[in-house]
Design a binder for these strands. Structure first.
Lengths: 133, 133
DNA sequence: CTACGAACTGGAGTCGTCTCCAGGTCAAGC
DNA sequence: GCTTGACCTGGAGACGACTCCAGTTCGTAG
């Protein structure tokens, strides 16, 4: 007999890296694909599916998708089949934003690396003078 | 006779993409390498050096360096020679953070790209059924 | 029976980064 | 001399994403 994994909010917090607060916040904001079940005493009971969904949400948030847009996407998924094109649009749009972000970040990285190089050379030259070379 | 370029706050805003508000805010926060000169009527007068410095600050901000840390760096530069090692530390630390950020962003991108691919295939398959294939 | 820890709720507070506002100054053009 | 537009100041407000608080309810252990 195989029972489905059931997790408390604390365990989910541990497993996802989100805080207990954040989990309740996400739920209130409507970015959980399926209603969270409640156990005895009204406590939240999460399943593996919830964890999987949360991990995706974390990825979207990490890459800068705002909560309201994650909600829009979530709502489409909740609605069920038939709106795949809209979901695709949201994802593609975000993909493009992430791409741009990566380009920008690379530019910043180039600048920083250049400056680090300059300072490193300078610091090294001072150090070698100090030992009399 | 070659006069130094002098710019009003509005012109700097145009050239850097920052808002006039943001420029005053940055100044108040102490992240301008040199005191901004004032023209007649107490108006700010910027030079090319200021623009260059601002562009670097924009890069640092874009890549997520918080204002207080940009201030620390700025203060070191204002202090003058002798603290290059500290400047280097700040830059190296930030460089590492940016590197991590890029790795994360790449992971997100991979996930999104995978999902886009799946939805794209699905949408295509629906479309081709619709024309009777 | 009591105490404890983990969970519950609605709502208030925090943090960082601007953004805007009210009220005022100044130079140039009509 | 009046208007217009760009600028000045200090301080308040906005926004997103949490984070924390007060007060309560459980279930289990001592």
């Amino acid at each position: 007999m195989l029972t489905v994994m059931q997790l408390s909010i604390g365990q989910v917090a541990e497993r996802t890296g989100l805080s207990v607060h954040a989990l309740r916040f996400y739920e209130k904001e409507g970015i959980l694909a399926h209603q969270v079940h409640r156990g005895p005493g009204g406590r939240r009971v999460y399943t593996q599916q919830d964890i999987d969904w949360l991990r995706m949400c974390i990825m979207l948030r990490m890459s800068g998708m705002p909560v309201p847009e994650i909600r829009r996407y979530t709502e489409l998924v909740r609605e069920g089949d038939g709106n795949e094109l809209q979901r695709l649009d949201i994802l593609k749009e975000h993909q493009e934003r992430v791409r741009q972000q990566m380009v920008q970040l690379q530019e910043c990285m180039d600048l920083i690396t250049r400056k680090v190089g300059i300072y490193q050379d300078y610091v090294n030259s001072i150090a070698s003078k100090a030992v009399g070379q």
